[in-house]
């Protein structure tokens, strides 16, 4: 097991980059960004995983517990998820506006997005 979660999260990041490089559709670009975000979030969550650890609530802790999880990575991940949602929403909104102007979502046909 060991490093498996990190490997998986980095594979997700790589897949997202692949989508960004190879796809031209604005919606698919947004999905690519989202996949990278999820990969990074998974990376943060797996950083905070403690085997056999319990939630850090002292009043609910069972007697004889060994390890509590430091909740910072979870808090970071929640924040990152919220930020990711805002980013995705804004990008999709722009995609809608661009489609209304140009009638296409193909980045290759839109002059501004070339290069």
């Amino acid at each position: 097991m060991g490093n498996m979660p990190f490997v998986v999260s980095m594979i997700l990041v790589g897949l997202g980059f692949l989508a960004l490089i190879t796809r031209r559709n604005l919606i698919k670009l947004t999905i690519g960004i989202s996949v990278i975000e999820m990969g990074v979030n998974l990376f943060l969550v797996s950083l905070g995983y403690v085997k056999g650890g319990i939630a850090p609530i002292y009043t609910y802790a069972p007697p004889g517990f060994k390890e509590m999880v430091f909740p910072t990575p979870q808090a970071l991940t929640l924040t990152a998820i919220v930020i990711g949602l805002a980013t995705t929403a804004l990008m999709l909104a722009f995609a809608v506006v661009i489609y209304r102007h140009r009638g296409t979502l193909d980045a290759g046909k839109i002059r501004e997005l070339k290069g």
Binding site: L20, I33, L90, M91, F94, E112
Partner: peptide, 14 residues
Amino acid sequence: PPEAAFKTMVMYTL
């Protein structure tokens, strides 16, 4: 402007 904003968003987010 929306096209410039989309492009910027991709770079900023990355």
